[in-house]
Amino acid sequence: MDSDVFAQLVVFTQQVANGLANGMGYVLIAVGLTLVFGVLRIVNFAHGEFYMLGAYFTYYVTALAGIDYLGALVLATLAVAAIGIVANQFFFRPLRKEHEFTILLSSLGLALLMANGAEYVFGADPKYVPTRYADETLEIGPVVVTQQRVLVIAVAFAMIAATYWFIRHTRMGKMMQATAQNPEGAQLTGINTGFVHAYTFAFACGLAALSGALVGPTAMLTHTVGDWAVLKGFIVVVMGGLGSVTGALFGGILLGVAESLGGGYVSLGFKDAIGYAIIILVLLWRPQGLFSAGSGRR
């Protein structure tokens, strides 16, 4: 093969690999967001802040308490899930009967509270979540991916599969489906929807924290990182269809790869605009989402 063509091919493959790794990070963020929307009917602006908390908790547990990164990741996920239960109890449960816009404002308030609180508690200085996988690379021929990014991809796939299985095949998952489809009907059959809401929210916060713990180490950590996370999450959720878990998977991968190919072959300055452009197109032509089968199914 001509060496120039080969070099081009290497760059292309590398960009797809970069996009896939970024995309799977987006998927992890988006799954929790889409679940909360599907089951609780909440557009949760504070989702990015749970991502931020996950990353900070991982930082404090590994850097200061000296616990191994993988252990810290699990601890952070559980801790943030527990915080999610509390957040739901104080910020969303009392507003269940209110207009959706009120709940949206409540989530916005929670986001601001958490972001500013984080600056106060954790400080404005950037932090680096140490993991032994961040600087180690996996080289497949000339294509280089850090082990951390491989870990993001692997965990994201595993979590998606687990979530899908959980929703389809467990009693709690079926209760989530029932609550999502018809809350009153679910209550009539004896489902405690308050309980369903609580564990769905906690599960989503745990997923957000897990994504923060995994994606956080690929860049420096600051208290404003939640803005970025929730934005990417929203783009993916709109692309994939609100409330759809499989939609989030394909939406995330598509966004990641589109950004890296667009940034690589069109213009890097254009990279962020790609997400917005896709959103506009999706809302115009397929408002139910690119990967959503129909309007009723979630």
Binding site: Q14, N18, A219, V225, W228, G263, G264, K271, D272
Partner: peptide, 11 residues
């Protein structure tokens, strides 16, 4: 506000 530079660095 970029946090990911892999695309640029690949180039």
């Amino acid at each position: 506000n970029d946090t990911d530079f892999t695309t640029a660095l690949t180039k």
